[in-house]
């Protein structure tokens, strides 16, 4: 396979006395969907957030598209990047939050257009046209001028996905994108995720939706206590788990 889009090596992270990530290695190739499963507090979200430097790792390296995230290597020294450079790196990595985090004072369309205009300095006309296409792609072309509070949770999350796509990122990270939604609204967001996967978008998804993992994932990762317990294709990890911990978790999630 080609050079991986994401390459994580030996990452450690502590919050005070709490050792959240204990030596994580992860590789994700272009056009693949990686699903991270695991119990609460296993470090899934922290791992995802460290991929775009929302969390600074204590030890180890994170590379996205071959670039070291948050640092510049010179010899055997790592120089911390300036905030400006980090922001530039982040613009190439989409992030979708559990709680959507749309900007409430901007319309759906303005939410989508804000970053391409201000972070990537693209032409306004082009960005607006593309934003309308993206809203259409997530099925919300009629909601372009609505404010986030006028939308349902599922619609808000779809706007958030369009907002991430607008930057044309090489990778999109999803942090439990359906966990804050009513069961009825989960489907509409997962449909969008499936479409993206089918279109060859490189995605890393932290979720509890086992059905989605089985259907859409190329690689399923099971994490517990800050470590990757096992990983592999869904048929292997979900149907024939090798570790007791994975089996115990899946027996509770799969009914």
């Amino acid at each position: 396979m080609s050079t991986p889009v994401v390459e994580v090596t030996g990452v450690h992270k502590s919050f005070g006395a709490l050792h959240v990530l204990r030596g994580v290695d992860l590789v994700a190739h272009a056009g693949t969907v990686t699903v991270i499963l695991g119990p609460s507090g296993s470090g899934k979200s922290t791992l995802l957030r460290s991929l775009n430097h929302l969390e600074k790792v204590d030890r180890g390296l994170v590379r996205v598209g071959g670039d070291l995230i948050g640092y510049r290597q010179a010899g055997n020294k790592l120089h911390e990047l300036s905030e400006r450079q980090i922001l530039k790196q982040r613009a190439g990595i989409g992030f979708v939050f559990q709680n959507f985090n749309l900007f409430p004072h901007l319309t759906a369309l303005e939410n989508v257009t804000e970053a391409p205009i201000s972070a990537q300095r693209k032409s306004k006309a082009q960005v607006y046209e593309r934003a309308r296409e993206l809203l259409d792609r997530v099925g919300l072309s009629d909601k372009a001028d609505a404010y986030p509070r006028q939308l349902s949770g599922g619609q808000q999350q779809r706007v958030a996905i369009a907002r991430a796509l607008a930057l044309e990122p090489q990778l999109i990270l999803f942090d439990e994108p359906t966990s804050a939604l009513d069961p009825e609204l989960v489907g509409e967001v997962l449909d969008v995720l499936r479409d993206l996967a089918a279109a060859g978008t490189t995605m890393i998804v932290v979720t509890h939706e086992i059905g989605f993992a089985r259907e859409a994932a190329d690689n399923v990762i099971f994490m517990d206590e800050g470590q990757i317990v096992e990983q592999g294709p869904p048929a292997q990890v979900l149907d024939n788990p090798q570790h007791d911990r994975t089996r115990a978790f899946l027996s509770k999630v799969l009914i």
């Binding site: 775009n52 929302l54 905030e83 400006r84 922001l87 530039k88 790196q89 982040r90 613009a91 190439g92 990595i93 992030f95 939050f97 709680n99 985090n101 749309l102 900007f103 409430p104 004072h105 804000e114 970053a115 201000s118 972070a119 990537q120 907002r163 991430a164 930057l167």
Partner: peptide, 24 residues
């Protein structure tokens, strides 16, 4: 979450402040 979303989108710092944070 608003600060995080703005940071994750790579919006420049002064723009985050004046366009995202201040109006709210």
């Amino acid at each position: 979450g608003q600060h995080e979303a703005a940071a994750a989108l790579g919006i420049p710092r002064h723009r985050q402040f004046f366009k995202i944070v201040v109006p709210q």
